[in-house]
Simulated scan of single mutants.
Amino acid sequence: MRPLRILLLLLLAFASMPLAASPAADTLAADSEARWVPFQLTTGNQIRFRALMDGRWVDAMLDTGLSDTAVSASFARAAGMKPLVQAHADAIGGAIPLAWTGLGRVEIGGLVRTGGRIAIITADPRATGPDAVDLFVGGDLLAGHALDIDYAARRFRLLPSGRMPFRGVTMPLRLAGSNNLYLTELAIGVRVQRGVIVDTGDGAMLTLTRSTWRNSGAQAGPVTSAVAYGAGGRVETDLVLLPDLRLGTLPPQTAELRIEGDTGFTARKGAAGRIGGGLLRRHRVLLDPRAGRMILAVNDAAWQPSRSTSGLMTAQDGRRLKVLHVMRGSPAAATGWTAGAEICAVDGAAIPSAYATSAVAGWSVGTPGRVVQLDLCDGNRRSLTLARFY
Score class of each variant (00 low, 15 high):
Gly379Asp: 13
Leu111Ser: 08
Gly80Ala: 13
Trp213Tyr: 15
Met81His: 13
Met1Thr: 13
Gly217Tyr: 05
Gly201Met: 12
Leu158Cys: 03
Arg320Lys: 14
Tyr390Thr: 11
Gly369Ala: 10
Ala302Asp: 15
Ser216His: 01
Leu186Thr: 09
Ala333His: 11
Val326Ala: 13
Asp131Val: 12
Pro305Glu: 07
Leu280Glu: 09
Pro97Thr: 12
Ser225Cys: 09
Gly177Lys: 03
Asn215Tyr: 08
Val372Glu: 03
Pro97Asn: 13
Trp363Tyr: 05
Leu296Ser: 10
Arg370Cys: 08
Ile343Ala: 04
Leu9Glu: 15
Phe265Met: 12
Gly94Val: 02
Gly276Glu: 07
Asn299Lys: 05
Tyr390Glu: 14
Arg293Gln: 15
Gln219Pro: 00
Arg154Leu: 14
Met164Pro: 01
Val346Glu: 02
Thr43Arg: 13
Gln304Gly: 04
Met294Gly: 06
Asp131Arg: 14
Pro352Cys: 13
Thr69His: 06
Gly248Ala: 07
Gly369Asn: 07
Ala271Cys: 06
Asp244Phe: 04
Leu312Glu: 10
Gln304Cys: 02
Ile6Asp: 01
Phe265Cys: 04
Leu41Cys: 03
Ser364Glu: 10
Gly292Glu: 09
Leu250Met: 10
Met205Val: 11
Glu342Thr: 14
Ala187His: 13
Ile275Arg: 01
Ala302Trp: 01
Ala73His: 15
Ala332Lys: 00
Trp363Pro: 06
Asp317Leu: 13
Asp63Glu: 11
Ser67Tyr: 14
Asp131Gly: 00
Leu257Gly: 09
Glu260Phe: 02
Leu28His: 08
Ala359Gln: 07
Leu280Met: 11
Ala350Lys: 08
Val133Trp: 01
Pro165Asp: 06
Ala20Ser: 14
Gly189His: 00
Phe39Pro: 02
Asp347His: 04
Arg290His: 12
Asp202Glu: 15
Ser16Asn: 14
Leu12Met: 14
Leu4Cys: 06
Thr128Asp: 00
Pro368His: 08
Ser364Gly: 12
Leu175Thr: 06
Phe156Pro: 00
Val192Gln: 15
Ala301Pro: 11
Ala387Gln: 11
Leu183Lys: 01
Thr128Arg: 06
Pro23Met: 12
Leu111Pro: 01
Asp90Val: 10
Arg370Asp: 15
Leu374Ala: 05
Gly201Leu: 11
Gly94Tyr: 04
Gly115Ile: 04
Val58Arg: 02
Phe75Asn: 02
Ile188Lys: 04
Cys344Val: 02
Gln316Thr: 10
Ile343Thr: 07
Ala354Lys: 06
Asp68Arg: 15
Thr128Gly: 02
Ser72Glu: 05
Gln193Leu: 15
Asp262Arg: 05
Gly217Ala: 13
Ile47Val: 15
Ala345Leu: 03
